[in-house]
């Protein structure tokens, strides 16, 4: 009796394990195939846990105190930082993506002069960011910077102290950001344009759609989805951009050009309050999460879209 019960129980357990396995792996690999699959999977899972899940979890844990947010909202520069972040996003993302879209049209030309110019044009993207932004900081120096010396040498005028006024300093940073990243997006849009079948342009030509009409009625509708995905991606990257502001303005003058990424760094490592710094960074989540969700939905579409 006991033996029968035992056999039945073991059989049930084996069936249950099989069920779990089927649920986990479907009708996928079994036996040595499964072992190989696990052998390949485990390192990736370990790396993901160690370098993605753990740091994100730790960051969330550091920034979970309500007191940190109370302190953050009481910081007199926080509101200014939010405004700066939104201005930086609105200008930085839209100007450089629109510029990239336009320039990608120019760079579709195939003559050697344009190709040579393209090589020069993508250089800012290719050079390391930090020395570039430090160089821009020096170029914008009011007394001995390259820009003002050029203005003096060519026009005989003393240029402004570019980094001494909030909006001028912030726009200078936006300019540096656009200069650095526009080439990258130009390459993306150039690839997008090259994927548009030539027959469509030939048909549009026959219908009389040339010049701006061709762009409005053919090119842009076909690139619209790519443009939207690039905008979302660029917004996420720009929101996390630290180097430009930190090395071009340093958050100055008088802490007036900080964005959330640089404020978070200042609070964590200059004020020596990592919890506050993390709260500053996490306060961007209400904007960041919807962007990521929309981006994931756009990327999850199965049909091929340019």
């Amino acid at each position: 009796m006991d033996a029968t019960v035992g056999t039945t129980t073991l059989g049930d357990a084996a069936a249950a394990r099989g069920g779990i396995r089927r649920r986990l792996f479907g009708e996928g690999p079994h036996g040595s195939d499964l072992n190989w699959a696990l052998a390949f999977l485990v390192p990736y899972v370990a790396v993901f846990l160690l370098f993605v899940l753990y740091p994100v979890g730790y960051a969330l844990w550091l920034g979970h105190h309500p007191e940190s947010y109370r302190e953050l909202f009481n910081d007199p520069i926080y509101l200014k930082t939010i405004v700066n972040t939104l201005v930086y996003l609105a200008l930085g993302v839209n100007l450089h993506l629109f510029g990239a879209l336009m320039l990608s049209g120019f760079f579709t030309r195939t003559n050697w002069r344009v190709r040579s110019l393209f090589l020069v044009y993508i250089l800012p993207w290719a050079v390391p960011a930090i020395p570039t932004f430090i160089a821009i900081h020096w170029m914008l120096n009011g007394e001995w910077g390259f820009l003002n010396n050029l203005l003096y040498a060519v026009f005989g005028i003393d240029g402004p102290s570019w980094l001494n006024y909030r909006w001028l300093a912030l726009f200078s940073s936006v300019g540096a950001y656009i200069w650095k990243w526009m080439p990258f997006w130009t390459v993306i849009f150039l690839a997008g344009r090259m994927a548009i079948p030539q027959e469509l342009y030939e048909a549009a030509d026959m219908d009389g759609a040339v010049g701006i009409k061709r762009f409005v009625h053919v090119t842009f509708p076909l690139l619209a989805n790519l443009y939207l995905v690039c905008t979302l991606l660029s917004t996420i990257w720009t929101l996390g951009d630290f180097n430009t502001i930190y090395f071009v303005t340093g958050g100055g003058p008088a802490l007036s050009t900080h964005v959330l990424a640089t404020l978070g760094f200042r609070d964590a490592f200059e004020v020596d309050n990592p919890q506050l710094g993390m709260a500053a960074v996490l306060s961007a989540l209400p904007l960041l999460i919807p962007l990521v969700v929309i981006l994931m939905r756009k990327l999850a579409k199965t049909e091929v879209q340019i």
Binding site: W144, N164, G250, A254
Partner: peptide, 19 residues
């Protein structure tokens, strides 16, 4: 005072002096 002193980092007054 140099206008850029509003944006100096720690080494910048050293550099401005040497210059």
């Amino acid at each position: 005072v140099p206008p850029s002193a509003l944006n100096w980092g720690d080494p910048d007054n050293n550099n401005a002096f040497h210059a």
